[in-house]
Each structure stands twice: as C-alpha cells, then as structure tokens.
Design a protein around this nucleic acid. Sequence first.
DNA 1: CTCCCTTGTATTGCATTGCGATACAATGTG
DNA 2: CACATTGTATCGCAATGCAATACAAGGGAG
Lengths: 297, 297
Amino acid sequence: MRESGPPPERFSGVERGERQDRPVAQEPVAQEPDSHARKDPLHVASLEKAFRVMGAFSSGRRDLGITEIAEATGLTKSAAQRFVHTLTALGYLERDEETRRYAPGIRLLDLGFLYLRHDALAERASPFLVAASERCGERVNLSEFDGSDIVYTFRIPKRTMGYINTVVGRRLPAFATSGGRAVLAALPEDEALRIVTQAERKALTPRTVTDVDSIMAGVADARRLGYAFTDSEILLGELAVAAAVLDHRGHPVGAVHISVSNGAWSEARVREDLAPLAMETAQTISRPGPSTRRRRE
Amino acid sequence: MRESGPPPERFSGVERGERQDRPVAQEPVAQEPDSHARKDPLHVASLEKAFRVMGAFSSGRRDLGITEIAEATGLTKSAAQRFVHTLTALGYLERDEETRRYAPGIRLLDLGFLYLRHDALAERASPFLVAASERCGERVNLSEFDGSDIVYTFRIPKRTMGYINTVVGRRLPAFATSGGRAVLAALPEDEALRIVTQAERKALTPRTVTDVDSIMAGVADARRLGYAFTDSEILLGELAVAAAVLDHRGHPVGAVHISVSNGAWSEARVREDLAPLAMETAQTISRPGPSTRRRRE
DNA sequence: CTCCCTTGTATTGCATTGCGATACAATGTG
DNA sequence: CACATTGTATCGCAATGCAATACAAGGGAG
C-alpha cells in the first residue's frame, strides 16, 4: 500500500551527513520543474509549487531570501514571492524582520504531529523500545520504511552523539542504515536489489558503503543473522544494529535500531549483546493486525 | 519576533485530551472560510485551502473520506476532491485503497524535520535534558512558546504514561500546562493576563483549571517560586513541574518540564526534588545569543 | 560617505488555472 | 435487489494566480 504507486519524489531526498556542515553546494535543490504536471486535470499546480518552496529549505541552509528561493526552486521571483508570502501568513515560514530572510516555522510541527499521533506502529512499539533502552542503556530508535528510505518515528536519546541523531522525522536512505538493511533483507531479493540499485548512493561519511555488491552482501548477512550491522556509515564512530519489524503478512514495515559509540563498545559486544535485544524487541512489536502502522479508529 | 504580528490562527488549535477518545463531535473543524482572504494580492488562496484540508485531520479522526473533508473544511466537494488528490500525489496524504479514505502521510514528518533540525534551543538543550532525565529517572520535556500555546520539541520518554505524551509536535494551551504557566510567569503580568483571558479555556481533564483568576494565581505562584506546578490538568494522575527558559533579553522562549505519575511521587517530593532540577536545567539552557531558538548558520 | 549593485516589495494587464455544478459510477445497506 | 450514499470524471466560465516590470531599500566597495 505504501510501497506501490509512482514514488512521488521526496524533496527531502537524501539528507546529507548534517553537522558535517560543509558549505553545501548551492545546487538546484528541488526536483525537476514539472514533475507532476502531467495532464491530470485534478492536479493543483500551486500546491506543488508551494511545497517546492518548502523543499528549498531541505538543502541544509537554515534561512533563505526570496531570490535564493526562486533560484533553488526554479520559480520566478514573482512566484516565489507570492508563495513565501502566503506560507508566512499561514505560519509555516517565519520571517526575520532584521535580515528579511525566511526559515521554517514551528507550525510545521503541527503537520508532523498529524501523522505521529495516529502512528499505530510507534504507539505499539513505544513501551518496548523504552524497556530495551533501559536494559542496555543505549539509544534505541524506531524507523519506518518508506519507498527507499527509512524515517525515524520514535527515538530515545541517551548521552547523545549529536542532536541530529535524536530528531524524529529524519529520513535516511535504506541502503546505508542498519535498519534499512534489515528491512531490505526481509524483502524479496529482487526487490531489495532494485531499491539499492535505483537509490542515489551518495556517501554520508568516508566509510559509507556505496557499491551495490557490498551493500547486497550486507543485506545477505542480515538475512542470515536476523539483524543488520553497520559501522560509521552514517556517523563516524557510531556502531548500529537493527532488526526488521514485520506486518501480519511478513512484509517489513520498519526496524528497531540500537546505536552506540565505538568508544564504549566493540563490534563483538554489539553483536553479542545488542543484536539479540534488537531482534527480540522487533519480534515483539511485529505481530499482526491488518494495518500495522496505523491505528484503527 | 515570534510573539508579534497578527497570530495566524492555528488549525491545530487546542488539541483535546487525546487518548480520552471521546467521539469528538463532528464540528466544523477548520477556521472561518475566508480568514486571510483580505484583499492581499499576494495571497494565494489555493494554499490556504490545501492546509485547511490538512486541518480537517486535526479533529481527532484518523482517516476521512472526500465528503467528510468537504464538510469539515467548508469547501465544495469538487475542491476537496482536487486538493486531496494533489496532496496524495505529493505524498502528504495516503489513500487506503480498500476504504477509499485518506489519512496523513509519513511525508509530513519531512516538514516537521525542516524545523527541528535547525532548532537551536532544542539542540543546545538536548544534552542537559538527557542529563536531567538520567539524574531523576523521569520524563523530561522541552517545549517552545508559540502564541498562546506551547509546543513540545524535545522529549525523553520513560516508562511512559501513554504514547501521546512522548510525541514531538504536540501543541497544548499554555494556561493548562506547567511549562505554559512558567512561561506566563516570565511575561509582563498584563500580557500573561491577556493570553489567558483570550485563550479558549477548555478543560482537558476534570481537573483542568479554567477560570482566569485561579490560573493567574498559579502563574503568580510560579513567578514567586521560579517554577510552575500542575496536578492532573492535562492527564489524570500526572504531576508536573516546569521552569521557563529565557532568551538574552529575559523573554521566555520555552520551558523545561518534568512529569511524573502521582503513584510514584507526592506533590511534596516533586516540589522538593524535581522543581530545583527543572529550574537548574532551564537556567543552564537560558543563556544568551541574539537568536535563542534558531541556530545561526 | 555616497554610489552602485543586489535583493526585497508593489503594481498591473492578461490568460491560465483552478472553480463548482452536474452527471456518472461504484459500494454496501436495508 | 433497489436505493441511498460516497467517490470519480467532465466541462465551460471567469476569477485567480501569473510574470514582467517598475520601485524602494539595504549594504558593500571604493
């Protein structure tokens, strides 16, 4: 249900390493101008443009001026002006009166909340994730599978390796994360291969594995072991294990991640101690229900 | 900067108790039809309508049909059809092919993430919140002040009293929360009074205090003590203390909350042990910086 | 300090785009 | 099996959003 259909390209795309704050090249952030502009008579073009404006902010820069937005989105300055104006009036952008630049507004959290509060998977999982975190004393995360990405929906911070790793809503490519590989391992081989092949395999750290064969080897390992393991592929110095969460049909819908610092943990201990915990927790959450992610009203 | 300007009415409005799942009357969820439709030539009406559609989902129901959406928003069925269609194509709504009903899509989290990842207050606060939580073993939250509400931006779950109390992005009226009262106590008295008076003071539990004088008494207590205390006003059986976080000018921008169950804690112990921790943490975070909530690039 | 260049803001006439009434199809209910 | 209800498709009209352009306001460089 989620995985079918023409994947409406996500503006977030691959979030770069974050915090690694390189200048972030001024690339044309948003997708091709007329992506959806097929002759669909029900399609409201203004809406797509407005979201393209929001998408301009996913390139890493916090605030943007009108002209920058126009450039990043490919809209004319007039159009950018109008959409920014309206989005600001609605509270989804905030204007700094000093600099006359715009930044995402706190109102955006209302939208995320609309999803989260009815997220049956996160709701069902939350007590078990807390329990797991208390047992091992480390960061436990729940992610949900979406297209070729995973999206964190429940996170338990500990003595944290950086704020960004505690933020709900972060989207990462499946191929590079432990949770993603665990999910891929639970898919039919050809589908996993398709996802990995088609993904834009950009390295997030120097240690991100980007060639298809190596990734698929990691997926095979995960299939054999029941969990996936990664080392420094998203953040240098971070070890992670994850196990897939399945719906009633056995399809993967997300994963339970446990992440630790390689200062405190060796790979061996992570595999011995944490992997079973991740698997057990994922198992517990996996159970049945016709709709696994959403709460039936 | 945030608190000035005509408060663009929020569709989330006052989120009701949640989990208390009463039927949630089928009221006209969204705001008056033409709120912003002043003669502003830069205002694009389609956008506002689209967000009104999203707003229809803030009434508590998880999924809605086209007709329900049309009714809830005051749009014609045609308009509802078009916006729902487009929002679905963009991934912000998801369609259940079985029931042909629509629900908020996981893509919405991308939007929330746009705000959170550059939230300087949450970023700066996170390690101290984690430390505080480890010290007392209870749920520690950070909220940010917005208009007459507070919005949670960083939450540390423990053996949780319900999933909903762990969700980032939840918006609650300032008057009824400990954090909100702490914030109000840090405002000039007349401004606090104005906010409380103008708020739609709907009870979230039988124990929510809704009359202005009592609320202002609580605010006065908070001003005197340096922290606010509430008992069961949001959730029955929950005790909470909170202290305001100030920016470099001394204006309140948010609050540090600590919430516990009244089974495990008495009011006296909460006031003795947790209130100082909340105050200390808030103090630590408060510090300076020209823009407190946002990270300068 | 002042000029100039860049960036944000306001205006306007035009036609494209979104509009809503209505007709049609499909569910599932009595 | 018929009917009520809800979702889907069509279409002509004009309102709404469009882009070009003119104007104002900062902010560096010299």
